[in-house]
């Protein structure tokens, strides 16, 4: 920010702030890995089968994607309104596209 006029290179507040944020990033990375492992384990161990498993897998993927969007890509930060609108709009149309092709191609 331009209002930052302290003579030291990076004031300690800013440094601490970005360190804290990095901590959150690492936490989200770990949770993404956990979700991935759960997904692979569910399939590998065949604890569940059938369409329930498929739904669960997709839910896990969506949660992971949201971590990626909101934290890694900073969509949760301020000033990301238009950016969010474009990606969520894309997801809506993507959903419709997949639904259309998935459901009414063979009938």
């Amino acid at each position: 920010m331009t209002e930052n006029t302290t003579p030291n290179k990076l004031d300690s507040y800013r440094k601490q702030e970005s360190k804290d944020e990095m901590k959150i990033q690492v936490i989200s990375f770990v949770s993404m890995i956990v979700f991935t492992v759960i997904a692979f384990a569910l399939v590998g161990t065949q604890l569940m089968t059938g369409s329930y498993l498929s739904i669960l897998l997709v839910v896990l993927a969506i949660v992971q994607a949201m971590f990626q969007f909101l934290y890694f890509m900073h969509l949760k930060d301020k000033g990301h309104g238009p950016a969010s609108a474009s990606i969520y709009g894309g997801m809506l149309i993507a959903f419709l596209t997949i639904l259309g092709l998935g459901v009414i191609t063979w009938w």
Binding site: L96, T97, G100, L101, I104, T105, W106
Partner: peptide, 12 residues
């Protein structure tokens, strides 16, 4: 293959 895929994508 399925030619309806073209129709879907085209009209989307």
């Amino acid at each position: 293959g399925n030619s309806v895929i073209w129709q879907h994508l085209f009209w989307i």
